[in-house]
Design a protein around this nucleic acid. Structure first.
Length: 278
DNA sequence: ACTATTTCCTGGATGC
DNA sequence: TGCATCCAGGAAATAG
């Protein structure tokens, strides 16, 4: 479940490995429901393009491309184009040697001038691939890291939905998923079922601080390696060792020893300490 | 305009 | 051992 910290880690890993490299050709699997743009358009946009920069926006990986103008020998920044990848649940962008065995569920392979390949692999096929040209790509909600404190409360206060659901709503904040929503709510001592509108100003501030803290720590740890997540170089993260509630149903709360509870909110499992969180 | 529920998808875990 | 069933969840689609 790549969320913001995992996507950030993957984007940084890609930036280190492939920035400046040129995509020479692209192979796309047939019969592909992961494509938000037509396969031909993706191939046309990627082939011959130089990878300028790889970065994260929400849970999206945005790859800025410099396309070669037809006939010209050099790369020019215009027309501006971007390759946008969403990892979904089990998506992976991996850089490897062209000779490496192609994993099952490989949906796209970009052959690089350096002799390596950038591959998109996604067993569960919840990922999404698209190319954007013209207007730059925009994530649906606002960026959680460094969000304005006052704007943060204003975003959630009108919502009647449980705060947990609101945190998962990417149109509000872009990047938080199930793990980091649960971990943030624990640190803020707020129960996931509380209606967003019921939170006090102080609680919103605690939640804001908790989100900043959890995301920063998780990025520093290289993300959480759950269900085989690894970054673009194949390195695992280790923030899963620091989860205080996620995946700890029945285990003692690390603060008060009360067994951690798991409930389902909006179809998602939510973990919390019934004593620490109000 | 909101909010809640269903759907997509496959590997791994569980149960008999 | 083998086969069926359940479960995980991001976000779009659908329903209310």
């Amino acid at each position: 479940m790549p969320e913001l910290p995992e996507v950030e880690t993957t984007a940084r890993s890609l930036q280190r490995q492939v920035a400046g490299d040129v995509i020479e050709s692209v192979w796309i699997a047939n019969k592909n429901n992961l494509l938000k743009s037509p396969a031909e358009e993706i191939a046309r946009t990627l082939e011959g393009a130089r990878i300028e920069c790889v970065r994260r926006m929400g849970k999206h990986i945005v790859i800025d491309l410099a396309r070669r103008r037809a006939g010209a020998g050099c790369h020019v920044p215009a027309p501006q184009a971007q390759w946008v990848v969403h990892l979904g649940m089990t998506g992976r962008l991996l850089v490897c040697d062209a000779a490496a065995v192609r994993a099952k569920h490989t949906h796209l392979v970009a052959q690089l001038a350096s002799g390596r390949e950038l591959r998109f692999i996604d067993p569960r096929r919840f990922g999404k691939l698209q190319v954007v040209s013209g207007a730059p790509f925009r994530a649906p909600g606002s960026e959680p890291i460094g969000a304005d404190r006052a704007a943060f409360a204003k975003l959630f206060k009108p919502r009647q939905t449980p705060i947990k659901s609101a945190l998962l709503n990417q149109k509000l904040l872009s990047g938080i998923g199930n793990i980091y929503a649960d971990e943030s709510l624990f640190r803020a001592a707020i129960r996931p079922r509380r209606r967003a509108a019921s939170l006090t100003r102080a609680e919103f501030m605690r939640l804001y601080d908790a989100i900043q803290q959890v995301l920063a720590e998780a990025i520093a740890a290289g993300g959480s390696s759950i269900s085989d997540y690894v970054d673009a170089a194949g390195a695992a993260g280790f923030f899963q060792l620091h989860h205080r509630v996620y995946g700890r149903e029945g285990q003692p709360c690390l603060v008060c020893k009360t067994p951690i509870k798991r409930v389902v909110i909006a179809g998602r499992s939510s973990h919390y300490c019934p004593r620490c969180q109000k």
